[in-house]
């Protein structure tokens, strides 16, 4: 690790609290901003996060082991026996998304995605998952917003062979009144809505349940809430994947 950033001791102190999930208020907001802005592109911080994650795993051994009830494994077996979620097959993910669009129709997509607008209570959960993804050295990070669009910073993070992507960012302005941001995946000139969000005090952490290999790129558009067309509306940001 290098010592080229004078504030890295302070960042490590913040990340230590974050790894323990012991932050709140302004500290939590600072950590969220760090994880959205700085960590994805900082090798040292990614290594620090990985070490802290390891330690939180080691400390677990201090808890006395307990025998879980047999019903727990039985419940998991039932879950495993259910039809598999789309995973490890990017093309299948695309086909499934397109098929779902046909089956549900645009109104079906509309209802489904409206329900998926990021809520505050889901924010921390998504951030926790994004934390594990960005701490993984195999993860890829793509800048979605252009430098000229600062202070808005949006990144897309994912594992190349994973089945999810995470859209993270800060300084994201609210959409127009009565509107939300929709994320569209595109491939071969066809667009599919894959997520929707509202910034949370300018912050965005959105889990997108789609394989990165399923799309050539994404477009984020300002759309009227409760409506969706066949193509993105007022395009705000876009990037290619991979």
């Amino acid at each position: 690790m290098t010592l080229d950033a004078p504030d890295h001791d302070g960042i490590e102190e913040l990340l230590a609290g974050y790894a323990l999930q012991a932050l709140e208020g302004e500290d939590a907001a600072r950590a969220d901003r760090l994880l959205a802005d700085h960590v994805p592109s900082c090798v040292r911080c990614r290594e620090t996060l990985a070490d802290l994650r390891g330690l939180t795993g080691e400390l677990a051994l201090l808890a006395p082991p307990r025998e879980p009830p047999e019903t727990l494994l039985a419940a998991l077996r039932r879950e495993l026996a259910e039809p598999p979620v789309v995973r490890r097959r990017p093309v299948a993910a695309w086909v499934t998304a397109a098929a779902a669009m046909v089956v549900l129709g645009l109104s079906g997509w509309n209802a489904m995605l409206t329900q998926r607008v990021t809520r505050a209570e889901e924010f921390q959960s998504a951030m926790s998952e994004a934390f594990f993804t960005t701490a993984n050295p195999a993860s890829q990070t793509v800048q979605v917003s252009a430098e000229a669009q600062a202070p808005t910073r949006l990144y897309l993070a994912y594992l190349p062979d994973g089945n999810r992507m995470y859209l993270m960012g800060s300084g994201v302005p609210d959409p127009r009144e009565g509107h939300v941001y929709w994320v569209w995946g595109f491939r071969d000139g066809t667009f599919v809505p894959i997520g929707a969000f509202l910034p949370h005090d300018g912050l965005v952490v959105l889990r997108i349940d789609a394989a990165p290999g399923a799309f050539e790129g994404i477009v984020i558009a300002d759309e009227r809430e409760g409506r969706i067309g066949r193509l993105p509306g007022d395009e705000r940001w876009a990037t290619r994947i991979g």
Binding site: G54, T56, G57, E58, N136
Partner: peptide, 20 residues
């Protein structure tokens, strides 16, 4: 795939996930 072997033991990854 959320676990990357290059970043340490599987055990610490899983138990860290449980702790979270």
């Amino acid at each position: 795939e959320a676990y990357d072997p290059a970043r340490g033991a599987f055990r610490t990854f899983l138990l860290s996930l449980v702790h979270h």
